[in-house]
Nucleic acid binder design. Structure first.
Ligand SMILES: NC(=O)c1ccc[n+]([C@@H]2O[C@H](COP(=O)([O-])OP(=O)(O)OC[C@H]3O[C@@H](n4cnc5c(N)ncnc54)[C@H](O)[C@@H]3O)[C@@H](O)[C@H]2O)c1
Ligand SMILES: NC(=O)c1ccc[n+]([C@@H]2O[C@H](COP(=O)([O-])OP(=O)(O)OC[C@H]3O[C@@H](n4cnc5c(N)ncnc54)[C@H](O)[C@@H]3O)[C@@H](O)[C@H]2O)c1
Lengths: 211, 211
DNA sequence: CTTATTATGTGAATGCGTTCACAAGAACGT
DNA sequence: ACGTTCTTGTGAACGCATTCACATAATAAG
């Protein structure tokens, strides 16, 4: 059980996948699951599943598999899903509104506490019970509400400024929907969600990789 | 210039990044750009940039760099961005509506031609000039309109069925927003956009990788 | 024309994630 | 109790992506 070792990004991504599978299995009442079963549900190999889990300990029983409930709980702790996180969304536009409307985030413990915009017509109105605040108070509000994660859903040109404000307020995790490369300290975790890029990957596949 | 060779997914993803950077540089009027400059704008090494581009040919001039306009056009051809693609969105909910409202897709050549839903109240209404069609005619309409890419924005339980319909209609590329693992033939290109997973990766980082 | 400078293109080296292969452990039937 | 079956956990082998390092070439200046 090589704890403390650096875990690869791919492994962490797959932990999310296992977590989702295990949640489903738990609802179905399955007591145990084998690495083979988990692998078949996604497009993985049993060895991959076992190796991933082995980085965090030995959770399985030889000849039997992994205890569903226990493993799900263990992964929840590893991923930090056994608690809640305070989230703020910046940009009350199409994407921002969609995110706020999405109930699953709250159920998973990602609590959207604040929404920001710079449009006076939107400020003061409310989305799903959460009032839209003025982005000019961003840093102060982020601090006051102990926001852990900031979601950036503003137009590209505004994204860098928002990111810097968030960082200055002590935020250590950003999910960015704007199609720009944010420059922030390495100590802040950044994930980009670039839908255009996804479409471009599909396009590349469709043309077969040559013009 | 090792053409025909299999290009890694990471390389293709970075091509999208280079394309965006080059588009910006072209607007600014920059005639050439070096691998070092490109690398600095993203978080890459110059060698990475050169290696990526070398898979497709020799576009640069030693001592000078790459011609911005030419390289952008070349990458556009490689990624299939020098043409248009017909896109259909299935699910006229929060995400589906956000996508349809997003003008940039059209500018990039991803033309959203059809929207589908199964809610009678939505069918017949229109989003941004595109009428919402009944999903029960999905396969026929996809064929009739020569749809290249299907975006799945329906609730998880409905996603697999939509994917199968799309595949049966000959669609070869799918962008899936539902948090499920779609089972489709390997000949169909699939990209998943799972926002919950992105938040979970951030959460993992915040807890430091241990419970 | 020569030298200094800059920057590409690419084999070779490196590093890292994935897969292999098997010893070891647990359950179950006889 | 014992053999059969199943499945984990993991060192080792493998393969692929990244990085290194340098020969090559173009430009510009003296
Ligand atoms: N909608 C999509 O489907 C889609 C797809 C891909 C990428 N994106 C990206 O997501 C981001 C948001 O897209 P959208 O469609 O929701 O845009 P939108 O225009 O609908 O919303 C942007 C919101 O941000 C607000 N805003 C602008 N500047 C601001 C600032 N400085 N501070 C705070 N708020 C500010 C605007 O008032 C608006 O309400 C953009 O960067 C876009 O490129 C969107
Ligand atoms: N909204 C978000 O921020 C968000 C975030 C993460 C993931 N997602 C995922 O994206 C998907 C869409 O989310 P949403 O928020 O837009 O949901 P939504 O409920 O707003 O929209 C779903 C739409 O699909 C339609 N629909 C349902 N079954 C259908 C079927 N069989 N055929 C055609 N249409 C059907 C519904 O009528 C509705 O209009 C879901 O799978 C959700 O889990 C959404």
């Amino acid at each position: 059980m090589p704890r403390n070792r650096r875990i690869s990004e791919s492994t962490v991504r797959r932990l999310s996948i296992y977590y989702r599978l295990l949640s489903g299995l738990e609802k179905e009442g399955a007591p145990t699951v084998s690495s083979r079963e988990l692998a078949e549900k996604e497009k993985l190999t049993p060895a991959q599943v076992r190796k991933d889990l082995s980085f965090f300990g030995s959770f399985g029983t030889r000849g039997l598999g992994y205890p569903v409930r226990e493993l799900r709980e263990k992964i929840a702790r590893i991923l930090g899903l056994n608690r809640t996180w305070n989230v703020a969304v910046v940009g009350a536009g199409n994407i921002g509104s969609a995110l706020v409307s999405y109930k699953e985030f709250q159920k998973q413990g990602f609590l959207i506490k604040l929404i920001f915009d710079n449009d006076q017509r939107k400020i003061g109105s409310s989305h799903k019970g959460i009032p839209v605040s003025d982005v000019s108070h961003l840093a102060d509000e982020l601090k006051a509400h102990h926001i852990d994660i900031v979601v950036i859903a503003v137009p590209g040109p505004a994204a860098q400024g928002v990111a810097e404000e968030a960082v200055s307020a002590g935020v250590r995790a950003i999910l960015n929907f704007a199609p720009v490369s944010l420059k922030i300290p390495a100590s802040v975790s950044l994930r980009n969600e670039n839908m255009s890029m996804e479409l471009e990957q599909l396009s590349y596949f469709l043309v077969g990789g040559n013009g």
